[in-house]
Simulated assay, not measured.
Amino acid sequence: MANKREPFLPDNLYHVYNHGNGDENIFRSEGNYHYFLMKFNQYISPIADTFAYCLMPNHFHFALYIKEESKLTEHFKDKLSKNPQGFENLAGLISRNFSNLLNAYAKAFNKMFERKGSLFLDNIQRKKIKDENYFTHLIHYIHYNPVHHGFVRDLNDWKYSSYHAFLSEKKTRLERENVLQWFGGKNDFEKFHQWKPKVDFEIEL
C-alpha cells in the first residue's frame, strides 16, 4: 500500500492517484476531464514529467517523474528566496502544487454543481517506483484501468487516458518517445497492452 504522507522527492518516479470522497464522482462531464488536465498542466507539468495517466469518473492515476532538484529550485526560486529552508522546504513546495491542483479543481467543480464539502480523499496518494518491472506494468495498468473497473470493454474506447497519445503523431506533453523506446517501439507498446495486467496493483483508495 502506498504511503500518502511520504514526501515527493526530486529525481524520483511515482505512481500518483486519488479517489472521490465516498461514492462521489469527481468527473461528471467531458468538460470536467478537460478542466482537470488544464489545471494539471498549470500546477504539475512545470515540476514533473508525465509518463502515463488515466482519468475515470471516480478516481485517477498518473505515472510521474518529479524533476531533478536544480530544475525545481529554479522553478521555485522566488518562493525559496523568501523562505530558504533547503531541501525540506522544496519537498513541501512540490506537495503544495499537488494540493493546489486538487483545490482549484474542487472549487470549480463545487461551483458548477452547487455542492459543498470535500471532493477528494484528504491527501493525494503516491507510491515511489523503485523497480523497472513495476514501472513497465504500471504503464499498462494505468491504461487498462477503465476496463478493469468496467467502464469500457476495450481500452481503445476510453477517451480520458494517455493511451491514444502514444499511438498518435500529434504534439503531446507526455514523455511519449521515452515510453515508446522503453517498450521497444510503438508496435511492441501496442502489443503489450493487448493482455490483462499480470502484476497485482490492487490498492486501497
Rank of each mutant, 00 (worst) to 15 (best):
N3W: 07
E6K: 07
D11C: 06
N12R: 12
L13E: 01
L13D: 02
Y14T: 05
Y14I: 04
H15Y: 10
Y17H: 10
N18G: 09
N21V: 00
N25D: 09
I26N: 02
F27E: 08
R28D: 03
E30K: 10
Y35H: 03
Y35G: 00
F36S: 05
F36P: 04
L37H: 00
M38K: 09
K39P: 02
K39G: 00
N41Y: 00
Q42T: 08
Y43M: 00
P46E: 07
I47F: 02
T50Y: 01
T50S: 08
F51S: 07
F51D: 03
A52G: 08
Y53E: 07
Y53M: 07
C54E: 04
C54P: 02
P57S: 04
N58Q: 08
F60R: 07
H61P: 05
H61A: 06
L64P: 00
Y65A: 05
Y65Q: 10
I66V: 15
I66T: 02
K67W: 00
K67E: 06
E68C: 08
E69K: 11
E69C: 04
S70F: 06
L72T: 03
T73H: 04
H75Q: 04
F76Y: 10
K77M: 13
D78K: 15
K79S: 11
L80D: 05
S81I: 12
K82D: 11
K82I: 10
K82P: 01
P84E: 10
Q85I: 02
E88S: 13
N89E: 13
A91S: 13
L93E: 03
I94V: 13
S95F: 03
S99V: 10
L101M: 10
L102Q: 13
L102I: 06
L102G: 02
N103T: 15
N103H: 12
A104K: 11
Y105R: 06
A106K: 07
A106R: 05
F113K: 05
E114Q: 13
R115N: 09
R115M: 11
R115D: 07
R115K: 15
K116P: 00
G117I: 09
L121H: 09
N123K: 13
I124R: 09
R126W: 06
K128T: 08
K130Q: 02
D131C: 01
D131Y: 00
E132M: 07
N133E: 13
Y134N: 00
T136M: 11
T136V: 08
I139Q: 00
I139S: 01
I139L: 15
H140I: 12
Y141R: 05
Y144T: 06
Y144N: 14
P146Y: 09
F151T: 08
L155I: 15
L155M: 11
D157E: 14
D157V: 04
S162F: 09
Y163E: 08
H164P: 01
A165D: 15
L167I: 10
S168T: 10
E169Y: 10
E169W: 07
K170Q: 13
L174T: 12
E177Y: 11
N178H: 14
V179K: 06
W182V: 03
W182G: 02
W182K: 14
N187C: 03
D188A: 14
F189E: 05
E190T: 15
H193I: 13
Q194W: 04
K196C: 12
K198R: 15
F201Y: 14
F201Q: 09
I203F: 13
I203K: 15
L205D: 14
